[in-house]
Amino acid sequence: PAHPYDRLKTTSTDPVSDIDVTRREAYLSSEEFKEKFGMTKEAFYKLPKWKQNKFKMAVQLF
């Protein structure tokens, strides 16, 4: 299930529990994912792991 970005980011005051914290981005809706990352999930997962992590750090999901 998708969760709002505000509850997934590492600085959230009301974090979602029971998620894989190493894959926070996977819980974003497709729309919100595209808004935050500027690309689709499919394109994101084709990137090298280090680049994925760099993007995730930039949007507080790492």
Rank of each mutant, 00 (worst) to 15 (best):
P1Q: 13
P1N: 13
A2M: 15
A2C: 15
H3S: 09
H3Y: 15
P4Q: 08
P4G: 09
P4C: 14
Y5A: 07
Y5F: 08
Y5S: 09
Y5N: 07
Y5M: 06
D6G: 00
D6N: 01
D6A: 00
D6L: 00
D6E: 11
R7M: 05
R7H: 07
L8K: 04
K9A: 05
K9N: 09
K9H: 07
T10Y: 11
T10S: 06
T10W: 04
T10P: 04
T10V: 13
T11V: 05
T11F: 02
T11M: 04
T11H: 06
S12C: 13
S12K: 08
S12W: 03
D14K: 06
D14C: 13
P15F: 02
P15K: 04
P15D: 06
P15T: 04
V16T: 05
S17R: 14
S17W: 13
D18W: 03
D18A: 09
D18I: 03
I19S: 03
I19D: 03
I19F: 05
D20T: 05
D20F: 02
D20I: 05
V21E: 12
V21A: 10
V21Q: 12
T22W: 05
T22G: 06
T22L: 10
R23W: 05
R23L: 10
R23P: 04
R23Q: 12
R24L: 13
R24T: 12
R24K: 08
R24N: 05
R24W: 15
E25H: 03
E25F: 06
A26N: 07
A26G: 04
L28Y: 06
L28E: 02
L28R: 01
L28M: 09
S29D: 11
S29F: 06
S29W: 04
S30I: 13
S30G: 11
S30Y: 11
E31V: 10
E31F: 10
E31Q: 13
E32W: 05
E32Q: 07
E32K: 02
E32G: 03
E32T: 02
F33E: 01
K34N: 13
K34C: 15
E35D: 12
E35S: 10
E35T: 10
E35Y: 08
K36D: 01
K36A: 08
F37C: 05
F37P: 00
F37W: 02
F37T: 01
G38C: 15
G38Q: 07
G38H: 11
M39T: 01
M39L: 03
T40A: 07
K41I: 10
K41L: 11
K41T: 10
K41M: 10
K41R: 10
E42L: 08
E42H: 09
E42F: 07
A43D: 15
A43T: 12
A43C: 12
A43W: 04
Y45M: 03
Y45H: 03
K46C: 14
K46N: 12
K46P: 00
K46H: 13
K46G: 13
L47P: 00
P48H: 00
P48L: 00
P48T: 02
P48N: 01
W50M: 03
W50S: 11
W50K: 06
K51M: 15
K51S: 05
Q52F: 00
Q52M: 00
N53Y: 09
N53M: 12
N53T: 12
K54N: 11
K54G: 08
K54F: 14
F55D: 01
F55V: 11
K56C: 13
K56F: 06
K56W: 12
K56A: 02
K56I: 05
M57S: 07
M57E: 13
V59A: 10
V59W: 12
V59Q: 08
Q60M: 12
Q60A: 11
L61H: 12
L61V: 03
L61T: 01
L61W: 13
F62M: 14
